[in-house]
């Protein structure tokens, strides 16, 4: 089994992706994560203005049989939450790297991105967990 891991972004061990563009970053859940969870039925997002440390739980997603926490790959303040995926959580299954982004944030320390995996490393991380 292989999963889509675009190489334009960085990945966290806990299956989040993040893209840094200037002072802003966009965060979402990976293809591997949506596949493991199967049909996602619910997403709970933070409100803009909330700040989180690297590793904090920033959102939760639920399928019928499982629940998962979404962690902050980098510390920062939430500037926008994608309410479209709260209304239509199935988008997370359909387009995890595009339409179904979770939040935009202003990173507190852009250097933190260096602690994350690139696409190749993350793809190996997924394959290693595939039973």
């Amino acid at each position: 089994m292989t999963w889509n891991t675009p190489d334009d972004r960085k990945y966290a061990e806990t299956d989040e992706w993040i893209i840094l563009t200037g002072d802003s970053a966009t965060l979402g859940l990976t293809d591997y994560a949506q596949d493991q969870l199967s049909d996602i039925v619910y997403v709970e997002l933070p409100v803009s203005g909330e700040t989180f440390e690297q590793g904090d739980i920033v959102a939760t997603v639920e399928s019928v049989k499982a629940a998962a926490d979404v962690h902050m790959p980098m510390s920062g303040a939430v500037t926008e939450a994608n309410s479209a995926i709260e209304d239509e959580p199935e988008k997370v299954n359909a387009d995890p790297y595009g339409e179904a982004w979770f939040i935009k944030l202003t990173p507190a320390d852009p250097a933190e991105i260096d602690s994350l995996m690139d696409a190749d490393a993350y793809a190996r991380h997924c394959a290693a967990r595939d039973d």
Partner: peptide, 13 residues
């Protein structure tokens, strides 16, 4: 329904 709220899935949370 909404069973992920419950202990058998979410355990300590």
């Amino acid at each position: 329904t909404l069973t992920p709220r419950e202990q058998h899935i979410r355990r300590d949370k």
